[in-house]
Design a protein around this nucleic acid. Sequence first.
DNA 1: CCCTCTTTGTTGAACTCTCAACTAGATGGC
DNA 2: GCCATCTAGTTGAGAGTTCAACAAAGAGGG
Lengths: 149, 149
Amino acid sequence: MPVMTRWLDDQEQATWRAFLSATRALMDSLDRELQHEAGMPHAYYEILVRLSEAPERQMRMSELADACGSSRSRLSHAVARLEESGWVKRQDCPTDRRGQLAVLTADGHRVLVEAAPGHVEGVRRHLFDRLTKEQVAQLRGISEAVLAD
Amino acid sequence: MPVMTRWLDDQEQATWRAFLSATRALMDSLDRELQHEAGMPHAYYEILVRLSEAPERQMRMSELADACGSSRSRLSHAVARLEESGWVKRQDCPTDRRGQLAVLTADGHRVLVEAAPGHVEGVRRHLFDRLTKEQVAQLRGISEAVLAD
DNA sequence: CCCTCTTTGTTGAACTCTCAACTAGATGGC
DNA sequence: GCCATCTAGTTGAGAGTTCAACAAAGAGGG
């Protein structure tokens, strides 16, 4: 039996459309810049960041997938690609013979260090420079509310 | 000459990571739901929405690309796909012989009408139900600030 | 009119992501 | 020990996106 749809009111509608446009524009810019300056998409950059912050710059594939909000399949393909570039290598996990460790290589770390300033600059230019301190706090609250489970 | 990088402070860092996670989770959910219920990704749904709102349910390819925040190439591929599904058709533009009009078909309109309630429900569940009225207003302001040129 | 520059839209190749199927190893009950 | 079940990770195919190259037609200056 069909239930009455709760359509979006004007404020919600306008918010949703602005949010979609803004997010798409933001992500497209960052992706393009990162591809141009570091030769990788934003998703791959994030993988390198997570690895660089992990103890011994290494992580189990599934932890890494969770940390990046990525599916296992996606991560598997991505790490394969990053391995071809020589930025990550895989090692067998000593405690679980099913497991694999993704390890950031010296080259991978160097690429990351070189790309980071330009990327941060981009995040500022496209996002934080356009917001007040108050809006930054609001955006954090909103993001955390969306994530809450 | 290298210029000192303005790194993100703690608040910005936390905001940026939460924003990335939240946006990715939100978009992934909506994409999955729409793919499952309507057989198309969110980007294609948006194309149908824009067409449905246009006079005579038709638009020039480049207007449509701008409205969707899409590249011409992307739109061209997308419309080709939507045409295969029978939801959109192309027509020559009468006033500009280079031009093409994308026209929403009756089938396309029907699919859209059927998918809309479920999609709106998803947008509510994943976004608006988790925010206060105040946060919705804030999100609108933030999005518009990011879009401003 | 002619030449140049711009705009419109498409195309193919390379790349990324998704989904379902699959292998291999761990786990738990009996 | 044995079996069913679950978890870790990979794989290949199909779908979507990007990028650069391209053809075709409009626009504008001389």
